[in-house]
Design a protein around this nucleic acid. Sequence first.
DNA 1: GCTGGCACTCGTCACGACGGAGTGCCAGGG
DNA 2: CCCTGGCACTCCGTCGTGACGAGTGCCAGC
Lengths: 353, 353
Amino acid sequence: MREDPRHADSRLDDPRLDRRRLEVLRAIVQDYVATQEPVGSKALVERHNLGVSPATIRNDMAALEEDGYIHQPHTSAGRVPTDKGYRLFVDRLSAVKPLSSAERNAIHAFLGGAVDLDDVIARTVRLLAQITRQVAVVQYPSLTRSSVRHVELVAITPSRIMLVLITDTGRVEQRFVETVPIADAPLADLRARLNALIVGHRLSDVPSRIDDLSEQFAREDRPAVDSLVAALLEVVVEQREERVMLGGTANLARFRQDFPDTIGPVLEALEEQMVLLKLLGEATGPSTLTVRIGHETGYEGLSSTSLVTSGYGRDGDAVAQLGVLGPTRMDYPGTMGAVSAVARYVGRVLDQT
Amino acid sequence: MREDPRHADSRLDDPRLDRRRLEVLRAIVQDYVATQEPVGSKALVERHNLGVSPATIRNDMAALEEDGYIHQPHTSAGRVPTDKGYRLFVDRLSAVKPLSSAERNAIHAFLGGAVDLDDVIARTVRLLAQITRQVAVVQYPSLTRSSVRHVELVAITPSRIMLVLITDTGRVEQRFVETVPIADAPLADLRARLNALIVGHRLSDVPSRIDDLSEQFAREDRPAVDSLVAALLEVVVEQREERVMLGGTANLARFRQDFPDTIGPVLEALEEQMVLLKLLGEATGPSTLTVRIGHETGYEGLSSTSLVTSGYGRDGDAVAQLGVLGPTRMDYPGTMGAVSAVARYVGRVLDQT
DNA sequence: GCTGGCACTCGTCACGACGGAGTGCCAGGG
DNA sequence: CCCTGGCACTCCGTCGTGACGAGTGCCAGC
C-alpha cells in the first residue's frame, strides 16, 4: 500500500519523484477513478489530508505533468492520469485489494457447483463479470499444457471410427475418422496400446510417443492404424487452436462516457478470438497478475481500456489465462484482487476434478 | 413486391387503407430506413413519383397517423413508422429480397468448408453477421428434435464410466458417471442393448424405450445399470438446455443513434441465453420466416430492435432456429432474404454430414 | 377528391455573455 | 529552500436569444 520501505525516507530512483508527489499522483488516480472528472488542486487537498496548500500541489502537478504521468485536457482544467501514470500507480502506489471473506466464500460456493469443464468456464466468466462489473475473458484450459486421461476408439461402422480424447482438465475432443475397414480385435488392441503409451503424459509429448506405433501391427491393419494415429495427432496438435469465452459485455455500456465513440472498436476486438487470445497469451507467469494499460495492449481499438489477467491452473502450473477488460480508468486494486482470487479458486476447482 | 393481387384494384380490409396510402406508407418506411430521419411530405413526392402533390400526401399521412401506422416525434417534424407500420410493411408491402447468385455461391462455399458441427455453427454466425451487418444468433441443433446415432460407454476405472451420446446432427454429449463397480462383460452387454434400443430414434423417444432396461440384467449389476441409464436420461432430458451462439455484436455500435441510451439493455438481453432461446424458440415453422418487431419481442430492452428468424434443419424438418437482430429501422426485405437463404444452405450442409 | 397557398409550430444552429473552476506566477514568510 | 496566499488569466460549459428552415394543418378553389 505505502511505497516500498527502502524508499520510505529518501528520494526514489527519479529524484523528481519525491514522496509527496507520488502521494499526489495516487490521490489523482483515486479521485479520477472515483469521479471520472479531471481533478484539480483544490479538490485534492480537500479530499485527502496532504497537509499542504493547493498552490504547493499545483507545483507538484506541474512536475508530474512534465514527466508525463498526468495530463491536462485543456488549459485551466483539472488533471487526468496518463497511461504512464496508471502504470506507476499499479507498480508502486497500490496493492492488490484482497476480497472480503464473504466474497471468497461466495466465489467458492458458486464455482464449486459446476458440473463439468464447460460449466466451470461459464461460471467463472459470469462470476468475474459480476464481481468486477466489467468484461470477463476466460481461456479454455490449453490442450497442449494438459495431459491425457483417456483415449477411446469407437467403431460406428467398421470404416467409420469415432476418436475421443479426454484430458485431465476435463476437456473432451472428438472426431470422426473415415478409414479402411478394421476389425474389432486390432481396434481394441490399438486402443489398449494407445492408452498405455500416452495416458498421464502431456499432450505435447504425445507425437513422439506414438510415431512408430503402426509398425507393431499386422500389415493389413496398418493403413487403418495410420489414419487413426494421424487423426489423433491432428486433434492434439491442430486443436491447439484455443478458445476463449467472454461475458459481461453489457458492462461496456456503463462506460459509454469513457469511450464516447470507441465502443465500436472495443466490441470488434472482443469478437476477434485471435485478438483476445493474443492478449491473454502474451501474459507470462503461472499465477502472476499482469496488467496492461491502454496502449500497452497493442491494439488501437483498445487504447482506452486496460486488461488485468492472471494464469490459472492445477497444481500451481498455469494451464490458461483469465482476466478482465475495463476502461483505463478502473479500480485497479479491486480488479486485481478479484482476478487473482478467482484465478486461485478456479485452479482449486480444477484440481478436484 | 406489389400488394397481393386480389387487392390490386379495390380497397383493402380497412377501407381507410386505399392503394395510395399503402404506397405512401411503403415510401415512408423505405425512406426512413435509408436516411434514418423523419420523412416529410415534400421529400416524399420528390423521391417517389407518386403523382400527387405534397398536400394530398399530408392528408394520407394524417390518416395513417390516426390509424397508428406512423408517428410524429414532435409537431412539425416528419413522420416515422411505428411498430405497427413496420408490421404492415413486412406483411403486405414488401417481398423477401433474394440474394444475388454471387452471394449464394459465396454462402455455399463458405459453409461448405466447415469441418464439424461447431464449425458449421461458427461459420453460420459469422456469415449472417457479415451479410446483414447486424447481430446474428444461431441455435445449436436441438437435442430433442434430433435422433441418436450412437451411444458409447467407456470404463475409465470399473467405477467411473464415461458416457458419450452422439446425435445425427453431429452433436456429442459426454458425461462421467460414478457408480458401483461393474465388470466389462455386463458393460459391453449394456452398450449393445442400449444401441439396439435407441439408435435411429428421436431423443424424445429415448426415455420410454429404456425405462425397463435394468430388469434384463443380473441383480448384482442393476445398481450400476440404473445409474448409467439415469445419467443417459439426464443427458437426453436435462441437456435439452439448448445453446446459442451469437456474433456481430460490434454491429450494434453502428446503430448507436438508433438506441441512444438503450444499447445497455440490448447487450444485457443478448447475454441472457434464456432470453435468446425464448426469442428463437417462440418461432414456429420449419423453414418459415418469422419477424418480430419492436415490442413484439416481448422484452422491454429490445423494444427498439427487431428480430428476423427462420428454422433450419435437415430434410426440411426444422431442428433449430437462426436469425438476426437489428434496429426496428432495418432493411426487412434484404434481411429476410439473407436469413432465409442462410437457413436453407445450413440445412443442406447438415444433410451432407 | 386533389391542389396551391398561407399561417403557424418547433427543433436546430450560431452567436454571445456569463460564471466558475482551475491554472501559473509572484512576492512574502518560516 | 520550500511553502503559502493572492491575483490575473484562460477556457469550458451553460444559458438565453434570434434567425432559419422544415414540416404541418387548414382552407378555399378547381
